[in-house]
């Protein structure tokens, strides 16, 4: 592998981890995901076209690997995971929830978005990709991208404006999308 590609990949690692965290919602799983995605990326690095964005190319591999992992995992696992987080949070009590600042609130809200909307929000709002780049990265048409984006952004806005609604009910309603 070209040493320049290598350096670029190393420099991009924090962003790969950030995107993976957005998808998996768990730092440990995020690093596992980055690792499998990187192994895939490196094994087929000759498929990357020089001159195109290396970050988007790897983002795509991260995303498809993530989807593969979810499909492979039992449905019950992801259900339990979310419910467990919810329990931990309620132990903290009312005060802790109030003290949570806007940044935690927005992260929490993003984690509660359905899978597809979350990937779009991570790429556009967090990673700063253009709509076209994000659509290409996810392999979806522009129309699909914008509709997921609009639904995701509206859901975030509602969760941020009325955090009480983003309680168990909201989470359960999203589980069905997983």
């Amino acid at each position: 592998m070209d040493s320049r590609i290598e350096k670029e990949l190393l420099a991009l690692l924090p962003r790969f981890r950030r995107f993976a965290l957005g998808l998996t919602r768990n730092p440990g799983n995020a690093d596992d995901l980055v690792q499998s995605a990187l192994e895939k990326a490196i094994s087929r690095i000759d498929q990357w076209e020089p001159g195109t964005r290396l970050d988007s190319w790897v983002f795509r591999i991260i995303q498809t690997t993530h989807i593969d992992l979810i499909r492979g995992r039992k449905r019950n696992d992801s259900f339990l995971e979310v419910v467990k987080n919810q329990d931990e949070r309620s132990h903290d009590g009312e005060r802790a929830i109030e003290a949570r600042n806007s940044l935690d609130a927005v992260r929490h809200a993003i984690f509660n978005l359905p899978e597809e909307q979350r990937a779009v929000i991570m790429l556009v709002s967090v990673e700063g990709l253009s709509y076209k780049e994000a659509a290409e990265t996810l392999g979806i048409p522009m129309g699909t991208l914008t509709s997921r984006l609009v639904r995701g952004r509206n859901a975030l806005m509602h969760m941020m404006d009325s955090p009480e609604d983003a309680g168990p009910g909201e989470i359960n309603s999203n589980i069905s999308h997983l």
Binding site: L21, I121, M122, S125
Partner: peptide, 14 residues
């Protein structure tokens, strides 16, 4: 506002 917050909220990883 929410976009800005979203960007910043994931910055710890960086």
């Amino acid at each position: 506002e929410i976009s800005s917050l979203a960007r910043v909220a994931f910055n710890d990883t960086m």
